[in-house]
Design a protein around this nucleic acid. Structure first.
Lengths: 145, 145
DNA sequence: GGCGAACTACGATCGGCGATCGTAGATGAC
DNA sequence: GTCATCTACGATCGCCGATCGTAGTTCGCC
């Protein structure tokens, strides 16, 4: 994803998105319908605080540029749709961050994850082991080919 | 670490630090001596391109504010020292990023790490399993106490 | 004691960028 | 054809890193 960034100090979407972008995506993912227009988002935002229609439009457009929203012309307007679910987006963001880690960071990441995962519950540890076993098998398969 | 951020598009230190900050840290970690003054960094940077002494000073000071450099007064000047090694810093940055991941991201992170680790070599997979075993034992110990 | 070089402190400027908005122009509804 | 709704475009503002000039401080030296 273009223009990606990550601010560990912020929590939730704000770690990966700018404030208004995050705010808009939360609204988008909270809508009943999948498709929506700028007006829908503006209406929802306006309910919270005064904000210009064009401000919402600009940022919504930016979200489209960033690949978070698909859109198609519907007469005179654009109809938008989220490209991913909220969870999907977080996964993607995580993926971006992790794949950019250098080897040293990766090793730290492993240790840290095991640690964190273990703190939550044993089931997660097993899930992790299962992942490793699956990988082993996959590699063995590759070796045959 | 204050003012932390992460730009997956950048590689190396530039993912976590701003350009001049990263440049300075590279120089600092490359110095023979641990202790150094702004003048030392300025000398090294100046060898690459023209840059004002004060520019280096300002950014070095910023690195101190961010907790990357310790410093103490030595007469009229400050003597600086890196708080962490390069590897230590990367580890810390990784830690910051990972510990801020939400549960969904954490699960993705695990899967992705196993994947990446497996691609590199089997030894890493074993290292990971060892980590898990160690964790298991640690938990069992906790249970007894 | 006082001068000069080395440093720091402070603040100004510049550029990039997100946030915000106004205005002009296009277009569908009636 | 008129009008409300939308988009396109560009301007402004604030924040912040990069960059630097200048003023003031302090140590070394004569």
């Amino acid at each position: 994803m273009k223009g990606m960034r990550f601010r560990p100090e912020e929590s939730g979407l704000r770690a990966s998105l700018f404030d208004l972008e995050a705010e808009i995506m939360e609204i988008v993912w909270g809508l009943d319908a999948e498709d929506f227009a700028v007006a829908d988002v503006h209406r929802a935002l306006e309910a919270l605080r005064p904000i210009a229609y064009t401000t919402v439009m600009t940022t919504t457009s930016r979200l489209h540029d960033k690949g978070l929203l698909d859109r198609r012309k519907d007469g005179r307007r654009y109809v938008y749709r989220a490209r991913m679910t909220r969870e999907g987006f977080i996964e993607q963001a995580t993926r971006d961050v992790l794949s950019s880690l250098p080897p040293v960071g990766r090793r730290t990441a492993m240790a840290l994850l095991v640690e964190q995962v273990a703190e939550v519950d044993d089931g997660e540890l097993e899930r992790l082991e299962a992942l490793i076993r699956a990988r082993r098998v996959a590699r063995a398969g590759d070796g045959d080919g």
